[in-house]
């Protein structure tokens, strides 16, 4: 069972991984997304669609569970204003074997990027601000999983 959380607060990556290791699955893989501080970025604000976000993430988690034999998993996505170095997202998967854990982890972050209703607005040190544009490569990465 993959647990999904959407929250403003930070999370403890180590504690989340330890909880999955305790399931006894044999393998845990994870991805942590952080705010990059390049290009004069001062902060990033993540907006989301509360009525839909958890539903969308649960749907993506259910698809991962359908595709791979998993012992458990955790998906945490933050919203609100985050500064460079801050954690944005954690995807962690426990399974009996590494291939399922690694593949399910990659699948979840690829699909989440194009299917979960979050939007990033960047603020720069020179005072400029802009909404991040969706990247074509992200659509291609997600679409590759549709064909598998």
């Amino acid at each position: 069972m993959i647990r999904v959380r959407v929250q403003r607060e930070d999370f403890d990556s180590g504690a989340e991984l330890a909880a999955l290791e305790a399931l006894g699955g044999g393998a845990v893989a994870s991805f942590t997304g952080l705010v990059r501080g390049d290009g004069g970025l001062k902060a990033m604000t993540l907006e989301h669609y509360p009525a839909m976000t958890e539903k969308a993430l649960a749907g993506i988690a259910a698809e991962a569970e359908r595709r791979w034999p998993l012992a458990g998993g955790t998906v945490i996505h933050r919203f609100g204003r985050l500064e460079p170095g801050a954690r944005i997202v954690l995807v962690a998967i426990a399974s009996a074997h590494r291939a399922a854990a690694l593949e399910a982890c990659a699948f979840l972050i690829d699909w989440l990027k194009v299917k979960a209703p979050f939007w990033k607005r960047e603020e720069f040190t020179d005072g400029a601000a802009r909404w991040v544009e969706a990247r074509r490569e992200d659509d291609a990465a997600a679409a590759a999983w549709e064909r598998r």
Binding site: Y49, H77, A116, E133, A134
Partner: peptide
């Protein structure tokens, strides 16, 4: 566009819907 919190396409019917959401392509993760 999402119709009642589910991603919709151009041909998705909106009759009977409670909530229509309109937004740019998502950029989370």
């Amino acid at each position: 566009v999402a119709v009642d919190q589910a991603i919709a396409g151009p041909e998705t019917p909106i009759g009977g819907a409670t909530e229509i959401a309109i937004f740019p392509p998502v950029t989370g993760g």
